[in-house]
Design a binder for these strands. Structure first.
Lengths: 185, 185
DNA sequence: TGTGTTAGTCCGGAAACTGGACTCACTCTA
DNA sequence: TAGAGTGAGTCCAGTTTCCGGACTAACACA
């Protein structure tokens, strides 16, 4: 048996990145957020190869992040809409955007900003879920909730395959287990 | 000349994804956040191929997100530390993690949570930068700040190459241009 | 002397990506 | 009525990247 420290970490970041951890997937989602829901428009706006974009959209639809809706019958035409899971990726897109605004914008500033109705930009603030207090990155404590499972690629495949049905079934918030966690060194 | 709508969108999300828009890069950053700064530990914890991880680390160091520090001279041994730019990616990691916690955690709940000192989980809240008001995704307005430039891969390469020196020079907050933006349909 | 650690590099096969051409069923315009 | 345009892809061949596994070098430790 492999020692615990020799096993890859099974965490929500890794799981999420299995689905959206790729440039074209996130850019496609960005376009849908900006209101461009059609294939050709996404190709133009993202610069993705058509093949690659088609593959990404299939994965995103399969994972329940986008929903493919027919808006014309003859000929068959489709649009991609965000599901609730897709809309919940908004903070991911926004934090990526804010980081780029800060570190990669040139002299002219960021090319596109998201404005609040009062005319100022949005920010993603780290807060405690319960007390609402703003949190500095260093002050958070990582806590292992259960023994790490050995990584088995079949598990990932099965989880991805079951995404749509689980979402369709309305499973959103998994049971929370509080306490009993182990501190990570 | 190509019409504006035929050009890929030049935005901070795309720019950021050119550097960190890949699974192994983000997982490496996650590990450094969790305190694992050494190559072999990252290999074990992320499951990344050694070659691929070495390549990602080179890019991250080149982009000024990680700093490579020697902690032993004979033999030469190195650790990877987060720069300020790297620490500012914390909200990105956290939002990815929270999404996975919500949509991909199984019966047992998320394997790893980040706790506030009061014992509750962290969340990333979208707020208006100025008035601090919480913002719903749909209520933000995308505003183009300047004419979209044609995408030229050389521009990206040059920007990435100059990342380290620009950060070293202390350029953090690009000049903000308020007003005069064009609404995006 | 043998084993372990650390931070990688080297290699060859497999998989994914890429740009460009093509398809098909329409609709629009001259 | 012909030709061009649109939309949502697929097909293809060449290129690039990924991946697993073996290997290295300089030490420390038993």
């Amino acid at each position: 048996m492999v020692s615990e420290s020799a096993r890859p970490r099974e965490c929500s970041v890794a799981r999420t990145l299995e689905i959206v951890g790729e440039k074209w997937a996130l850019l496609a989602i960005r376009e849908v957020f900006l209101g461009n829901r059609r294939f050709d428009e996404m190709v133009r706006r993202t610069g993705a190869p058509r093949d690659t974009l088609a593959a990404r959209l299939r994965v995103l639809v399969g994972a329940g992040i986008l929903a493919r809706r027919q808006y014309s019958e003859h000929p068959a035409r489709f649009e991609y809409h965000l599901t609730e899971a897709g809309r919940d990726l908004y903070p991911v897109i926004l934090t990526l955007m804010r980081w780029g605004d800060t570190y990669l914008a040139g002299q002219d500033g960021p090319p596109l900003v998201l404005e609040h109705r009062c005319g100022h930009r949005l920010a993603a603030q780290l807060v405690c879920e319960s007390c609402g207090e703003p949190v500095a990155p260093g002050s958070a404590r990582p806590v292992l909730q259960r023994a790490l499972e050995p990584v088995d690629k079949g598990v990932h495949a099965a989880r991805l395959a079951s995404c749509s049905s689980r979402w369709a079934g309305g499973l959103r918030s998994p049971p929370q287990r509080r306490g009993g966690g182990r501190r990570v060194s």
